[in-house]
Simulated assay, not measured.
Amino acid sequence: MTEATRHTPGTPCWVSLMVHGLDATQDFYGALFGWEFSPGPQQLGPYVRALIDGKEVAGIGRIPSSRQLPIAWTPYLATDDADVTAETIRSRGGTVGVGPLDAGAAGRLAIATDPGGAVFGIWQRAAHRGTAVYGTHGTPVWNELVTPETSFVGKFYEAVFGYEVEAVVSADFDYLTLHLAGRPVAALHGVGQALPRRGTHWMTHFEVEDTEEAARQVVELGGQVLQPPRDGSSGRLATVADPEGAVFTIVRTASR
């Protein structure tokens, strides 16, 4: 288990989920990942932070009745200035739907949509630094944008966050890895006509000790297995959904 000490601008630094049933969702992820919960900022409604060994991992909030928000895991990308980044997002063809606004003393945030329609957040930290621990069961390990094709939207993320883009050269595989200071931090995966019905979206991967066992638990807890356990370049993974339909990937990384 490793602790995070600093988030370079553009690095995925937090993942958050908005749902209708906050208590039931806490029960699901608490059982699946061993998370405990503490209160978080309430600017967008009731919100809790998930903890492992007292360290913050992710956030879950209740969808306000006045807002139409997707039930989906949303990655937040670090920024030193949420207002400047929000303006850059707009100037590059994206949309800022929420904020920028202060989350109490925790920091400043905005929720945006890229030109392809995928929702993501930006986070300017203050008291809350973002995800504080990685590399153990129940922690986010990777974020990947699922999109029809990568070239157009890749230029957007490169312009907004200054990523170095590395393409996987293949006749039948459209994949871009986003790097900061030579380190891969996220990826864009072009799937063409195989795009799911929910459209372009960011997919969060969570580390698990045993992919088969975690997939079995998902079903026992009222979720679904959408793609059964399989081997991938990053390890043994499966695509699953929680009881409200939020889709995520569980993976036992190759390093385990």
Rank of each mutant, 00 (worst) to 15 (best):
Glu3Ala: 01
Thr8Asn: 04
Thr8Tyr: 05
Cys13Glu: 08
Cys13Pro: 08
Cys13Phe: 07
Trp14Phe: 01
Val19Leu: 08
Leu22Glu: 05
Leu22Pro: 09
Asp23Lys: 15
Asp23Gln: 14
Asp23Ile: 14
Asp23Leu: 13
Ala24Gly: 13
Ala24Pro: 10
Ala24Arg: 15
Thr25Glu: 10
Thr25Met: 06
Asp27Ala: 15
Phe28Ile: 04
Leu32Gln: 06
Trp35Cys: 03
Trp35Thr: 06
Trp35Ile: 04
Glu36Asp: 14
Ser38Trp: 00
Pro39Asn: 03
Gly45Ala: 04
Gly45Trp: 07
Gly45Lys: 02
Pro46Thr: 05
Tyr47Asn: 08
Val48His: 10
Leu51His: 04
Ile52His: 11
Ile52Phe: 06
Glu56Gln: 10
Glu56Met: 03
Ala58Trp: 07
Ile60Ser: 02
Gly61Tyr: 05
Ser66Cys: 08
Ser66Leu: 10
Gln68Gly: 02
Gln68Ser: 12
Pro70Glu: 02
Pro70Gln: 00
Ala72Pro: 10
Trp73Gln: 06
Leu77Phe: 14
Ala78Gly: 04
Asp80Met: 01
Asp80Glu: 14
Ala82Tyr: 02
Thr85Pro: 08
Glu87Asp: 14
Ile89Gln: 11
Ile89Glu: 12
Val96Ile: 01
Val96Met: 02
Val96Trp: 04
Gly97Asp: 12
Gly97Glu: 07
Pro100Asp: 01
Pro100Val: 00
Pro100Glu: 03
Leu101Pro: 03
Asp102Val: 04
Gly107Ile: 03
Arg108Thr: 03
Ala110Asp: 00
Ile111Phe: 08
Ala112Phe: 10
Pro115Ile: 11
Gly116Phe: 09
Gly121Ser: 00
Ala127Gln: 02
His128Gln: 06
Gly130Lys: 01
Gly130Met: 04
Ala132Pro: 05
Ala132His: 04
Val133Ile: 15
Val133Ala: 10
Thr136His: 12
Val146Tyr: 07
Val146Ala: 09
Thr147Gly: 05
Phe152Glu: 15
Ala159Trp: 06
Phe161Glu: 00
Tyr163Phe: 02
Val165His: 07
Ala167Trp: 09
Val168His: 13
Val168Gly: 06
Ser170Asn: 13
Asp172Pro: 05
Phe173Asp: 08
Gly182Trp: 10
Leu188Lys: 09
Gln193Met: 08
Gln193Phe: 10
Ala194Pro: 09
Pro196Ser: 05
Thr200Ala: 15
Thr200His: 12
His201Gly: 09
Thr204Val: 13
His205Glu: 14
His205Trp: 15
Phe206Arg: 06
Val208Leu: 09
Glu209Leu: 13
Asp210Pro: 12
Asp210Phe: 10
Glu212Cys: 02
Glu213Gln: 14
Val218Pro: 03
Val218Leu: 01
Gly223Ala: 08
Pro228Gly: 07
Ser233Pro: 13
Gly235His: 11
Gly235Gln: 10
Leu237Phe: 11
Leu237Cys: 14
Leu237Asp: 15
Val240Gly: 04
Ala241Phe: 07
Glu244Cys: 10
Glu244Gly: 11
Ala246Glu: 07
Ala246Ile: 02
Ala246Thr: 01
Val247Asp: 04
Thr249Asp: 15
Thr249Pro: 07
Thr253Asp: 11
Ala254Pro: 03
Ser255Pro: 12
Ser255Asn: 13
Arg256Phe: 12
